[in-house]
Design a protein around this nucleic acid. Structure first.
Lengths: 333, 333
DNA sequence: CTGTTAGCGCGTTCAT
DNA sequence: ATGAACGCGCTAACAG
């Protein structure tokens, strides 16, 4: 005896009104006499009627759902962004379809198309770069898109992020002021523009301002993991570098731990500064100084921007740069 | 010049067949001549036709979407579970609607109802407990539900988790073997059954087996954060406890760091063992020993189980207990 | 203020 | 192997 699914018609019949009226009260339309509104509400409650969002979506061409493309949920960097997106989304009554898309993995196009087929009203993309193929898919659809934490070289796509160049320039300059001459740069994937272009540019800029020659021997690439960090420390140390800027907290934690274990005093003999200010910075010993990228806010602002775009509101700024700050802890002097 | 949305009718017309045929090829129905199938495919490609999943959902009463209820995405514990769910879900072509539900926050009922209104085909619940009100909502709907990482006291709901009692019993017994007499128990929220019942029971069981009297003075409750851990260490130390079992990695990291900073040698003078084996265990110095709850697998198995339920397949075991193990690192002898 | 009706895009009989 | 026609549950004119 399957309980039959209750539709708007059942409610209408039970309340002795037309389905249109039910639709009106459900959608908060003012054109309903208070009396009938009450009666309808009572019936809705009694029958335990729950509107079918799929049918509603088909009729209204709006799904109140957005697609979020995220490289890796277990990376605190992305998880923090996602949290910001999520909070604002639920504030505006949107649901989130979460889709993993490890960078540099195939069929990204199919994944986006699948999302679009679900008729999402908007998209948030968190990847560090956006392939040409993907860009074409996005452009071809009319679905609004916002990049969270990432940059579009041509500023064609709406995006929210910090000024990576300035942030890195800033911290590397501080290291230079602490009289370091050889400062290493450790990036995750130098293929992607955030690490390989903006951050590296900031590093170069700081060196140039201080008349220090750039040397590619001091630039390292490593996977974002503790182990990779542990492994790379010796290599860094062999260059006689006395300080390092790292683009990822896990990586930085590995480097720091490896340094500490080999008996080096931090920050006296070696300084480390990292980039994301995730909770990892508080867990290492000594605690890590970091650029503070306001991840939660970036996610939140990106989502807010998206709601405006979905609402066809006027957007004053396509590209939003949020302020960063620098959190000094124990891994720098 | 808005590009018109392409429907199945447009494809049908262009290919000179009926929409039924298009539907057949899109859904892989065998009853289509190879020749017409090819022609249709060609047209689909040319017109860049993308089936509307919402319309399909309305007609078929299946959304190929599942709802995932998660307390906090930025908690590595839940993020790892989610990763497992996500991977298996995409393997089976399901999309995930991610919904945050901080425990002990209001309108949980509304959140679930919203999810159900979206016609999700199944639900994964990650909370540590499930309120009576929520349970009623779940029971009332016919939507399959699986608990990931959590236990249903009455085994009425499908669930995937480890044997919390045995795991804690096991590690506490090991601490006892290391000749500790006073072992503290630090739990997150003792209101929830995982910490306040199962894990605590395991702790008590170990003590009892060793003829050590249980004392509530050695049981602590603290929020799952580094700061709370740092703050609580002194209190623990004042009890003259020489070892501690902690239910959360962040909390454990705080305790460990506070201990190290106050000059205590770990594991010589004080042992710490934690519960979730997240990456935090590798980041602290010394690295933390931990129960290894196979979070990714729990998520993956939960999702797999859900696919079976959605498929009306026979389920042999409603409750799946996955094996745990114990990872010895540097915070225990 | 309320009811009627025509779609929304697609799956699915039931004929042919 | 293919097509015609109905219905999924709801929104949105339009009419009254």
């Amino acid at each position: 005896m399957d309980k039959k699914v209750i539709t708007i018609y059942d409610v209408a019949e039970e309340a002795n009104v037309s389905m249109a009226t039910i639709s009106r009260v459900v959608n908060g339309n003012a054109n309903v006499k208070e009396e009938t509104r009450k009666k309808v509400m009572e019936v809705i409650d009694r029958l335990n009627y729950r509107p079918n969002a799929v049918a509603r979506g088909l009729a209204s061409k709006k799904s109140t759902t957005i697609g979020v493309i995220i490289p890796n949920i277990t990376d605190l960097y992305y998880a923090s962004l996602a949290k910001g997106v999520d909070d604002v989304a639920s504030m505006y009554k949107y649901n989130i379809i979460l889709t993993s898309l490890e960078e540099s993995v195939g069929d990204e196009e199919q994944i986006i198309n699948n999302l679009l087929s679900k008729q999402v009203d908007g998209l948030i993309y968190m990847g560090k770069q956006i392939s040409k193929k993907l860009k074409r898919v996005f452009m071809h659809s009319k679905t609004p898109l916002v990049l969270a934490g990432s940059v579009d070289k041509n500023n064609e796509t709406a995006s929210v992020h910090i000024d990576f160049v300035e942030a890195v320039n800033n911290v590397v300059t501080q290291l230079i002021h602490n009289s370091h001459k050889k400062i290493a740069f450790v990036g995750g994937n130098l293929e992607n523009p955030i690490d390989g272009k903006y951050r590296l540019d900031g590093y170069k800029k700081a060196l140039k301002n201080a008349n220090i020659n750039f040397s590619s021997d001091l630039v390292f690439e490593a996977e974002n993991s503790v182990r990779a960090g542990e492994a790379i420390f010796d290599v860094i140390k062999n260059t006689n570098a006395t300080a390092v800027y790292v683009t990822d907290d896990l990586l930085a934690a590995g480097i720091l731990n490896s340094a500490v274990r080999s008996g080096i005093s931090i920050p006296e003999d070696f300084e480390i500064i990292t980039s994301n200010d995730t909770i990892l910075c508080e867990v290492t010993n000594p605690k890590m100084s970091s650029i503070e990228e306001p991840l939660y806010d970036i996610g939140a602002v990106a989502m807010r921007l998206l709601t405006k775009m979905m609402n066809q509101e006027q957007i004053d700024e396509n590209v939003v740069k949020l302020p960063y700050s620098i959190v000094k802890r124990e891994s720098t002097r």
